[in-house]
Design a protein around this nucleic acid. Sequence first.
DNA 1: TTGACATTACGAATTCCTTCGTATATTGTG
DNA 2: CACAATATACGAAGGAATTCGTAATGTCAA
Lengths: 129, 129
Amino acid sequence: MMNRSTMKPTAGELEILRVLWDRGPSTVREVHEELSRSKDVGYTTVLKLLQIMAAKGMVTRNENQRAHVYEARRPADETKRELADDVLQRVFGGSASQLMLHALEGRPTSRQEIEELRRMLDDYERGLR
Amino acid sequence: MMNRSTMKPTAGELEILRVLWDRGPSTVREVHEELSRSKDVGYTTVLKLLQIMAAKGMVTRNENQRAHVYEARRPADETKRELADDVLQRVFGGSASQLMLHALEGRPTSRQEIEELRRMLDDYERGLR
DNA sequence: TTGACATTACGAATTCCTTCGTATATTGTG
DNA sequence: CACAATATACGAAGGAATTCGTAATGTCAA
């Protein structure tokens, strides 16, 4: 099996990870309720996915309670960074400005948001010194 | 079948699209040669993928020559924009600055590259007026 | 023309992802 | 206790993606 610390989540797994990132450690029921707000999905489907993710080492499982509690094993930032880098390399050949340009074009972007991006660049550059 | 004009290419299809974007209309042999530089892949594997992509309407096929000539049907920018937007929404909930932050952190970033990002933002904002 | 070579067509194996049904186990309550 | 409600376990179906082998077909040169 692939190195577990650099495993790329599938689309379905990512949806679940985002719930866990938002809510913190959660039961199947809680994850299912959250996902149900935005899509039609069966309880056992969520359960199965969480079991698979646990088998992959992508989440940990605490079995102290009857309703097991799942938690993302890796920090959200780490996974997000990898996913961003993945699309950066695979689609844009590593060009960050190309990625940003197309991301901005993909949807309405306010001037305010651009301001925030500038601030972010300033902060980031400050970190480089 | 999904609407053909917003079909998301798979990982393998994307590799081929990038070759077609770079080279323009190409034969299977040409695509295969290009891909072979970076990975071990069989000729008929590339052929099959191109046939599938043609069936999906993702590429067009010109059969005038014995060696058919394939060409990406949609402009590269359009597809890239969708892929960027896809990761923007699915991973970062639409926050462009979060995407950028994680993309930059994902790998070494030069000050030069940050400069380019600033120019890109300037240009983009100019387009908003 | 015929044989070597290049090319396409196509089926099929394999793996992964997604989804869910059913069986089983546990818990709390009347 | 026994029943209803709530969990987990697990198999399996269906579909998509990937990969390649083999057969069929076309082309060119000796």
